[in-house]
Design a protein around this nucleic acid. Structure first.
Lengths: 187, 187
DNA sequence: GTCTATATACCGATAGAC
DNA sequence: GTCTATCGGTATATAGAC
């Protein structure tokens, strides 16, 4: 693994755990076992490195989701499979945490990968819910676009609650709750 | 308003907007129009001030929620009224943002008000859902404890999504989605 | 490509005068 | 109670040797 790769990977880990404001170039260099010069040679400062690291992270998460969305199971089953993916509740979401960082939200280039990931995810779920809607798997009065937003929000909020209470079971409960609301619409 | 009060209020605003890691004592002093000496006279450093400010913030939010939970309307209507309270989607939740801050989560005293607020809120909603459950306002297969966690998570996640996309309508959509899932369980 | 040295600013806190 | 002065440490980046 090259110095450049290790710097990218370290940035990713530290951004995940401490956010953008809470991550210093020195910390990244230490974690990657690289010097100042190396980092500033390969990247355009903390910001440039963060943009690259964040973009890579969202692409990976997208691939993981895509793997769950594909397949031949009924649409609603695939939605539920995504909701039930294993997640590290106490660590939080690498993408979602960026959305609450003041320096990320006010920087277009830094925010772009975050925005694009959530836009894509919500739209993808909406398509599946639309299919479930047409085939009668979910109640007629449900608006797929609204429900897909609610599902993504529930996942993101579960991370917040689990961390606030330092108890991963809160995430399990939230997901169980939303899955129950989504299924057996006819009682 | 005394210097002490202004320092508390300023801390509250800045913690809300920039989080704990992103808020410096100097910034608080400037915002409050107070000097270094004044701040360190009244409070036990940044941490002590943050604990007080955060505790005050959660108490206010609790009062606001309590006002919505009371009344004589059917339980489910009160739950929905809380979900539909006006919120500043792009600013985020003053309590929720703390849960993603690394220095808050690892500090028992700083995390306590955050944990207590969410524990209280989830339990309060669970009680109302329990009532709605007994009176047949929500489907029998729903577990009040799970649904209440999902509702709080949806609100918190809506803030994340709205900020990520810099569009307050995402919060509206999420709330509409969860309300739709919660109502008309019989189609 | 990587290193060390250096620069300017800010961090969080303390000291002591008034 | 409030002020200014000061502290040791870190944040982010640049310079220039190798």
């Amino acid at each position: 693994m090259t110095n450049r790769d290790r710097l990218l990977e370290s940035a990713r880990v530290l951004l995940w755990d401490r956010g953008y404001v809470g991550t210093s170039p020195a910390a990244i260099q230490q974690h990657a076992n690289a010097g100042q010069g190396s980092m500033y040679h390969h990247f355009d400062g903390k910001r440039g490195l963060a943009i690259e690291a964040l973009t890579a992270a969202t692409q990976d998460m997208r691939r993981r989701a895509e793997a769950t969305f594909g397949g031949s199971a009924p649409a609603l089953d695939r939605v539920i499979a995504y909701l039930r993916l294993e997640r590290d509740a106490l660590r939080g979401c690498a993408v979602g945490r960026m959305a609450l960082d003041p320096d990320v939200v006010t920087d277009e280039a830094l925010r772009r990968p975050v925005e694009e990931f959530f836009s894509w995810l919500t739209e993808r779920l909406r398509q599946l819910l639309d299919e479930a809607h047409r085939s009668g798997q979910i109640a007629p009065h449900l608006v797929p676009g609204d429900v897909s937003a609610a599902l993504v929000a529930t996942i993101q909020g579960s991370y917040v609650l689990a961390r606030a209470r330092q108890d991963p079971r809160v995430m399990t409960a939230s997901i169980d709750g939303i899955v129950a609301l989504l299924t057996h619409q006819e009682g």
